[in-house]
């Protein structure tokens, strides 16, 4: 049931048009951060206001929405945002990646490959990949405009000189279509290879920083690296303890204060689907049938 006191998907139509224009510009110039007049939303900045505005601008009454946080549908913030759209847009919601037409995510890309026609909306805290090298926005905009990305590689060089490898594990910077360097939002670098050549549309919304950027389908995305220190996606060196999957991204769960740990798929829908199909892991309960 949608709440009749608000327009469909909360935002007024003029605001949605403004956001759609920014999205279209972002799709036309992949990886370029389009400034937009972000609105105050009924959740705090940093909790997905950018993603929520992008989702609101994309939703139609026929859409089916999935919301995940850390890969899971049942995390508190995901539940909160899903409820928000159930209430203000009345759209159907799902936890199944394959069923969703719009997926809003924080920090993960679903394990199941996305398909054409789907939209993946990322929540972005800091859209500027150069921000931690240069705090001034006026300067970073100029660096993008002039393609001055040497400093980014200096950072990676320093990592290797100091630690022997590139010590960026999430929000790992990428170069889009050989032009803009882009922050893929704080997804683990494990997910970076899924950014490129993806059949779905990927939209990135940063509410507090008032930026939208986008990856159109099948776009070229390269994680920055050196020839002799190539980018390597990484994950915990375990199988999922519930579904046995050896290739999914895993959460580490502390089970006691004696150093006990278990590892489970961060993508809960993926894990459940596998378990329903009969896959089992190290800590799966014994079959009772």
């Amino acid at each position: 049931m949608s709440d009749q006191a608000y327009n469909f998907a909360y935002l007024d139509e003029a605001t949605k048009r403004m956001i759609r224009r920014a999205i279209l510009k972002g799709l036309a110039v992949p990886g370029y951060q389009v400034p937009f007049a972000s609105r105050e939303m009924p959740m705090p900045y940093g909790w997905g206001t950018g993603g929520v505005q992008v989702t609101a601008a994309c939703l139609t009454p026929e859409d089916t929405l999935k919301v995940i946080d850390q890969g899971a549908d049942d995390t508190t913030n995901a539940v909160s945002i899903r409820t928000f759209f159930e209430r203000t847009a009345g759209v159907a919601t799902t936890t199944q990646t394959a069923q969703a037409s719009v997926i809003q995510t924080r920090h993960r890309i679903p394990e199941e490959p996305l398909r054409a026609g789907q939209i993946l909306v990322y929540q972005v805290p800091i859209p500027e990949p150069l921000r931690f090298l240069e705090p001034r926005e006026s300067e970073t905009r100029k660096m993008h405009a002039l393609e001055e990305y040497g400093l980014m590689h200096v950072k990676l060089y320093e990592d290797i000189a100091r630690h022997g490898e590139i010590s960026t594990a999430y929000a790992y910077p990428v170069r889009v279509e050989g032009r803009y360097v882009m922050d893929p939002s704080p997804i683990p670098k494990f997910d970076n290879p899924k950014l490129g050549n993806c059949p779905a549309i990927q939209l990135f919304g940063a509410g507090r920083e008032q930026r939208i950027y986008a990856l159109p389908p099948y776009c070229d995305v390269v994680s920055l690296d050196f020839e002799d220190h190539p980018f390597t996606p990484s994950k915990a060196d375990h199988d999922c303890d519930l579904c046995g999957c050896a290739t999914s991204y895993l959460d580490e769960v502390i089970t006691d204060d004696q150093g006990g740990r278990m590892f489970v798929c961060s993508d809960t829908d993926f894990c459940e689907t596998r378990r329903d199909a009969g896959h089992r892991g190290r800590l799966s309960p014994e079959e009772t049938a």
């Binding site: 990305y149 040497g150 400093l151 590689h153 060089y157 000189a161 050196f226 020839e227 002799d228 220190h229």
Partner: peptide
């Protein structure tokens, strides 16, 4: 100079700015 960057990084910056992407060669 970039005072917060190592000597090697300082010398390597211009190389990287013009496209050098081999760590060993830069070093």
């Amino acid at each position: 100079l970039r005072m917060g960057v190592s000597a090697g990084g300082n010398v390597g910056e211009r190389l990287m700015a013009v496209g050098a992407r081999n760590y060993g060669a830069i070093r």
